[in-house]
């Protein structure tokens, strides 16, 4: 759909010398009316939805959706360290990221533990570790498992948001919630929360994770190149996105706590 629109715009401005620029960019990601391929404004996030308690046996679990991206996170722990040689004075945080066979458009059979999954597991682990008060839980381990059910760009961010909710649901002491959001820069416009098509355009893609209350950045990744003054804008946009998500997550947690309170009859 989007590709067709792009072609049309090439034809439309074919006469007035702009054709070069358009072909160079291949596709128009922001229409002249200021709308993106999926109809969002540049600074608009996809619809987010979260649900706590998706996995009954886990100590904490959550589903997090950002548009068509959908992930499940489950937290097991704090529990006894399984590998005795890893016992320490701090809690051991582990993370595994996996993608379902049907999560992407083309069906593929991927084995667990390929390079990309390993890298994302590591990123999620480090980001979550930064907010967990590990010194309060000596000689114990916390396992975070994230499963991607649908991938449509921004799986990293969605996984981190889901993991935060699951950790909070498991009652693990944290400094602050960690929330994550991505932002990019296409057609000279900073765009919030890239979807798969925008993500694969090859433009700059900044994934940011923050501790919203402490106002600290715990995760920052960027592909491709970007002038510094523009990076500042794009980062600011991503921070706004993270804060919006943090507000939503806080609402969900509050709602969940009220439900628990109600069930206990307090």
């Amino acid at each position: 759909m989007g590709i067709v629109e792009g072609k049309e715009s090439i034809e439309r401005c074919g006469g007035n010398g702009m054709v070069f620029e358009k072909i160079h960019l291949r596709m128009e990601y922001v229409s002249p009316e200021g709308l993106r391929l999926d109809g969002r404004r540049p600074m608009e996030m996809r619809q987010i939805r979260a649900e706590i308690g998706a996995v009954s046996k886990a100590d904490g679990s959550a589903i997090f959706e950002m548009g068509n991206t959908k992930v499940i996170a489950a937290v097991y722990g704090p529990r006894e360290v399984q590998n005795r040689s890893q016992i320490s004075n701090h809690a051991l945080v582990r993370c595994e990221y996996s993608m379902a066979n049907f999560s992407t458009g083309d069906r593929m059979r991927k084995s667990k533990g390929d390079r990309r999954s390993t890298e994302i597991s590591l990123v999620i682990r480090q980001t979550m570790e930064a907010s967990i008060l590990t010194h309060l839980l000596p000689r114990s381990q916390i396992d975070i498992y994230v499963q991607v059910l649908q991938a449509d760009g921004g799986t990293r961010s969605a996984c981190i948001n889901a993991a935060t909710l699951a950790l909070a649901d498991a009652g693990i002491p944290m400094r602050d919630l960690v929330t994550s959001c991505s932002a990019g820069y296409l057609n000279s416009t900073p765009l919030l929360d890239l979807n798969y098509v925008e993500d694969s355009a090859g433009g700059p893609d900044v994934t940011l994770g923050i501790l919203p209350k402490l106002d600290k950045v715990t995760l920052l990744q960027m592909d491709s190149k970007l002038p510094i003054d523009i990076l500042e804008n794009v980062m600011q946009l991503a921070i706004e996105g993270c804060k919006a998500i943090a507000n939503y997550i806080r609402e969900i947690l509050l709602e969940n706590t009220k439900q628990l309170e109600y069930r206990r009859g307090v």
């Binding site: 996995v55 046996k57 886990a58 679990s61 499940i72 996170a73 489950a74 097991y76 595994e96 996996s98 379902a100 066979n101 059979r109 667990k112 533990g113 396992d143 498992y145 994230v146 499963q147």
Partner: peptide, 16 residues
């Protein structure tokens, strides 16, 4: 038919 056991279901399903 292919079945996959996600590690979210049980920590024992981690890795292989």
């Amino acid at each position: 038919i292919y079945i996959d056991c996600s590690s979210t279901a049980e920590p024992a399903f981690e890795g292989r």
